[in-house]
Each structure stands twice: as C-alpha cells, then as structure tokens.
C-alpha cells in the first residue's frame, strides 16, 4: 500500500483537509472525497474537457492534475460559480438563455472553460471562441449554441 498524504485544498473559498493516496487526481478528490459531483468524469484521460476546473484562476483538466498539485492553490468548480439558489454567473445565464446544452453532462466543463476563455481575452470573435473552446467536447452537438452563449457573456463582460 502506498503511504497516504495529508493535503489542504482551497475549494471554492473553503479550506478542506484530505488524507489520501498521493496518486488521487484532483477530479477524484473533488468527486469521491468531497462530494462535489458538479465536475464530471468523461474520458479521464484529458481528451474531453468535461472535468475542467480553475486552479489559480486558470482552467485545468482535473483528471490530469493530481490533488496534491493543487494543494494551497485556490480551486474553483462549477459549484463555486454561483451560490445555490442565488443569481447565476453571467456565463451560466447565457448558457441557459441560448440552450447551449442538451444532456448537460459536459456543461459544467464547458462553462468553466468559457469563464476562463473570456477572462483570458480569448472570446473576441466567433473564430477565437471556436479555437479556444475546442478542447471541450459536446456529443449532443450544442456547439453553435455554445458559441452564441460565450459571445453574449463576453460582450457583457467587456
């Protein structure tokens, strides 16, 4: 058995202390250890984007990030984007308005990616949005609606 490690994670502004196998990914730490199931496991190999979260404000694939790598750095998940029952984040509101999803499984990853994409200044045109959102797959094919939602949210943010 591998020796377990104890780490402190800063998730959505809350400090969480976890004792776990050092091989545990940030994705599994969120879903299995902290019950934060908003972040989705799709391919678990960094190929689909469903597990996208923010670490230090930048988007990362939580399935390719060890929980230990995120220790002491602020992590934001879909649960941290808006308060339960409260007003939606403008990107969430734009996704809702443009029906930018169907099954909803890739949606938290899409939204986290879009928030970062806008913050990075990579949502200046539809071409740019397509390029910088291309790592988030949507099998339902809501892509045209995703572009429209990101564009609207970007315009509101600027």
């Amino acid at each position: 058995m591998t020796t377990e490690i104890t780490i402190e994670l800063d998730i959505n502004g809350r400090s969480e202390t976890l004792t776990l196998d050092p091989r545990v990914t940030l994705l599994d730490a969120l879903r299995e250890h902290l019950g934060l199931t908003g972040t989705k496991k799709g391919c678990d190999q960094g190929q689909c984007g469903a597990c996208t979260v923010h670490v230090d404000g930048a988007r990362v694939l939580s399935c390719l990030t060890l929980a230990a790598q995120a220790a002491g750095r602020p992590v934001t998940t879909i649960e941290g984007l808006s308060a339960p029952g409260g007003e939606l984040h403008p990107v969430q509101a734009a996704f809702l308005e443009h029906d930018a999803f169907q099954c909803g499984y890739c949606t938290p990853g899409q939204i986290m990616s879009a928030v970062a994409c806008i913050r990075e200044g990579h949502a200046g045109s539809d071409e740019e949005i397509r390029e910088y959102m291309a790592g988030n797959l949507c099998r339902c094919g809501a892509y045209p609606h995703i572009v429209a939602a990101v564009r609207q949210a970007a315009e509101m943010a600027s």
């Binding site: 199931t37 908003g38 972040t39 989705k40 998940t77 879909i78 649960e79 984007l81 808006s82 339960p84 939606l88 969430q92 509101a93 996704f95 809702l96 029906d99 999803f101 909803g104 949606t107 938290p108 939204i111």
Partner: peptide
Amino acid sequence: AREKVTGR
C-alpha cells in the same frame, strides 16, 4: 436548465 448549468 438551471440544474444543468449549476452542475446539480
């Protein structure tokens, strides 16, 4: 829709 955009 709201459940889906909030990850719930």
